[in-house]
Each structure stands twice: as structure tokens, then as C-alpha cells.
């Protein structure tokens, strides 16, 4: 069992190192992913996408289509789905008892941006 422990531990750290090394060689993420189309959506349009299968959220002024990501979200659906079709900045900033999402989540979120939320005057 000692041998099993040593081999699994060494393999684990080798793979962690491999992920880290690979990340250093990565070209920056494609601009196309980060530059989402700057289309504007009204709160009414946003509200039409309020189900787990069709889930848009407005966060910090951006509108995000999270339908494809929801199944991969670590929290149970009952925590996340109620925010579909809504302005969810506060929920995003205060998850797990007052703590905001990590920078990793911000980067992941950017990949799902489809536009911006129209201000009240624009409605």
C-alpha cells in the first residue's frame, strides 16, 4: 500500500505540474470569446429566459446566456435557477454567505456574454 500511495501521489503532482506548465504556454484566450456582441436587451426580454434550459442573467450590466453552463455549475439547480431571467448581480456577489465569486468565475462568465442590459431610460 505504501507503494500505491507513493505512485498515486507522485502521479498527481506530475499532472498538476503539467496543467500549470501548459497554462504558461497558452496563447491568450481568443478575443472573439471575450468581445461579446454588444447587443442591448431590455429587462422584459431578459425575463423571457427564466428556465434552467433557457437561462439568461444580468450581472454587472452584462447579459449572459448561461443555459449551456448551468448543468456544470457546482451548486444545486434550486440555488441558481431562480435567478434566471433576472438581474442577478447581488446573488453573484454574495454567494456562499456573503462571499463573491472568484476571478476564475469572472473569466468563465465572460465566455457566456451575449450583450448588455438596457438602462431604465432605454426601455
Amino acid at each position: 500500500m505504501r507503494r500505491f500511495y507513493l505512485s498515486t501521489t507522485v502521479l498527481f503532482w506530475l499532472l498538476v505540474t503539467a496543467f500549470w506548465t501548459a497554462s504558461l504556454w497558452l496563447p491568450t484566450p481568443e478575443e472573439s470569446l471575450l468581445l461579446a456582441a454588444e447587443k442591448t436587451y431590455t429587462p422584459a426580454e431578459l425575463a423571457k429566459h427564466a428556465t434552467a434550459a433557457n437561462c439568461w442573467m444580468a450581472i454587472r450590466g452584462g447579459v449572459y446566456d448561461l443555459s449551456a453552463y448551468l448543468p456544470a455549475h457546482p451548486s444545486p439547480p434550486e440555488l441558481v435557477v431562480p435567478w434566471c431571467g433576472r438581474e442577478a448581480t447581488e446573488a453573484y456577489k454574495t454567494k456562499t454567505k456573503g462571499r463573491s465569486h472568484a476571478p476564475f468565475a469572472d473569466e468563465l462568465l465572460a465566455r457566456y456574454k451575449i450583450g448588455t442590459l438596457a438602462s431604465d431610460q432605454a426601455k
Binding site: 496543467f19 497558452l26 484566450p29 456562499t96 472568484a102 468563465l108
Partner: peptide
Amino acid sequence: PDGRQLAWQTLSPFSQGWPV
């Protein structure tokens, strides 16, 4: 598949929060 940097950020606690 979404990017090597994203793979590392999934693993690294430095780019994640308290849960990780």
C-alpha cells in the same frame, strides 16, 4: 477543451475561492 489557462484555473486554488 475551452483553454489550457481555464483548465489550470479550475485546478489552482489561487484563481478560485474558499471552496477550492
